[in-house]
Amino acid sequence: MTTHNPVVAALPGGGWRARFKGDDGSPLVWPITCWLIKADGSVVPIDVDCYGIAGDPTESSNFDRLLGPDDDDEVESP
Rank of each mutant, 00 (worst) to 15 (best):
T2C: 02
T2D: 06
T2W: 05
T3V: 12
H4Q: 06
V7K: 08
V8I: 15
A9L: 06
A10E: 13
A10V: 11
L11T: 00
G13L: 04
G13P: 00
G14C: 07
G15P: 10
G15E: 10
W16Y: 14
R17F: 06
A18D: 05
A18T: 08
R19G: 01
F20H: 11
F20C: 04
D23A: 15
D23N: 15
D24Y: 15
D24W: 14
S26R: 14
P27R: 11
P27M: 09
V29K: 10
V29A: 05
T33K: 12
T33M: 11
C34E: 15
W35S: 05
L36N: 03
D40Q: 11
D40T: 05
S42L: 11
V44G: 03
P45C: 10
I46E: 09
D47G: 13
D47Y: 05
V48I: 12
D49C: 06
C50E: 14
G52K: 09
I53F: 12
I53T: 13
G55F: 10
D56M: 00
D56I: 00
P57N: 03
P57R: 01
P57T: 01
T58P: 02
E59W: 05
E59N: 08
E59Y: 02
S60K: 12
S60E: 14
R65E: 06
L66A: 04
L66M: 15
L67H: 07
G68Y: 02
G68R: 14
G68E: 02
P69M: 03
P69E: 06
P69A: 12
D70P: 00
D71I: 04
D73P: 14
E74S: 15
V75E: 12
E76W: 08
E76I: 09
S77C: 10
P78Y: 13
